[in-house]
Simulated scan of single mutants.
Amino acid sequence: MSAEEFRALHERVRERTRRGPDDRRGTLGYLTPDRVVAAAREVTTGRTVSLAAPVDTRPGPDNPEPARHRMKAPDLARQPSPGLQFALDRFAMNVHGDVDSHLDALCHVLYDGTLYNGVPAGSLTPDGAVELAVDVARDGVVGRGVLLDIPRLRGVPWLEPGEQVTADDLTAAEAAQGVRTGPGDVLLVRVGHRRRRREHGVWNTAEARAGLHPEAVEFLVDRRVAMLGCDGNSDTAPSTVQGVDFPVHVLTIHAMGMQLMDYLQFEELVPVCEEEGRWSFLCAVAPLRLPGATGSPVNPIAVL
């Protein structure tokens, strides 16, 4: 896709999802109270499944800045003393890495010098984002989750790095799985990244990964999806758009106002969906309340 074709797509997506100039919630506006109530009716067995991967503290080709976890207390070199003690620890994380499950806020992507809905880049300060930070989702995102399994559709264990998911793939997966994505849904797209990483070994995902074709974003527009999550980061590498490395991030976050969840894991959810014979469920997403932050670690929960 040429730079001109991408700009035309960006403008088309923005116009089709345009809201008032004061909007700061973007596609979360599709999650109306009645849709949350309807999503709660998806619960029939009460089974819960985490959609996050364990936080990875090991360095590797896809994790040059791993999360750090250290015990602060007690002093493990000394014998425990009588009476009360507390075990204490500290975490540090590069939220937007290529391994740990996280949510991208609407202030995460700048394109042509602005954030979503024309918010100026000057709203990003050394102390954090003044607008569009992850705190926009402080009350949580609770709605109907839909998992579309593209490797299952294609009869393979995973998509190879560089392969792309098209809008036709998403529609075909719906038909094969007997489900349809609708307004306010949390759409989850499996490309098999986690399984490939586990069985094939780690690699530099910044240079090679499976993801969505930019034109597949129009599927999200058509269906009025509230949030997108992937077991990769939704973008293919290398990018097929001239001069834009993360076109899906630009189209969803910047043009649509859609928060993304990157590097989730669905390997525990897939067998449950197959056993239950359905691919929709209640999905609860609760980012940390981090005022001014561009994202948050996240552990979404599917409730069937």
Rank of each mutant, 00 (worst) to 15 (best):
R47W: 05
R47H: 06
T48M: 11
V49W: 01
V49S: 03
S50K: 03
S50V: 03
L51N: 14
L51E: 05
L51K: 12
L51W: 04
A52R: 05
A52H: 01
A52P: 00
A52G: 04
A53H: 07
A53T: 06
V55G: 01
V55P: 00
V55K: 02
V55R: 09
D56M: 00
D56K: 02
D56E: 05
D56W: 00
T57N: 02
T57F: 11
R58F: 07
R58V: 05
R58G: 04
G60N: 00
G60L: 00
D62E: 15
D62L: 15
N63P: 08
N63V: 02
N63K: 04
N63C: 12
P64A: 04
P66T: 02
P66F: 04
A67K: 00
A67S: 08
R68L: 15
R68G: 13
H69E: 11
H69T: 06
H69N: 04
H69R: 14
R70Q: 09
R70T: 10
K72L: 15
K72N: 15
K72Y: 13
A73Q: 04
A73N: 03
P74G: 02
P74S: 03
D75S: 09
D75P: 06
D75I: 01
D75K: 09
L76A: 14
L76M: 13
A77P: 00
A77S: 13
R78G: 01
Q79P: 02
Q79K: 05
Q79S: 07
P80K: 06
P80Y: 07
P80R: 07
S81K: 09
P82A: 15
P82W: 10
P82L: 13
P82M: 10
G83P: 00
G83E: 06
L84F: 13
L84P: 11
Q85A: 13
F86E: 11
F86R: 03
F86Q: 07
A87M: 08
A87E: 07
L88A: 11
L88W: 01
R90G: 02
R90N: 08
R90S: 11
F91Q: 15
F91I: 11
F91L: 13
A92V: 10
A92L: 09
A92C: 04
M93I: 14
M93E: 08
M93C: 10
N94G: 11
N94F: 15
N94Y: 14
N94K: 14
V95M: 07
V95S: 07
V95Y: 01
H96T: 08
G97W: 10
V99M: 12
V99C: 12
V99W: 01
D100M: 06
S101F: 06
L103S: 09
L103C: 14
D104H: 15
D104W: 14
D104L: 13
A105C: 05
A105Y: 12
A105E: 06
L106T: 11
L106K: 12
H108R: 15
H108W: 14
H108I: 09
H108A: 15
V109P: 02
L110H: 10
L110V: 13
Y111D: 00
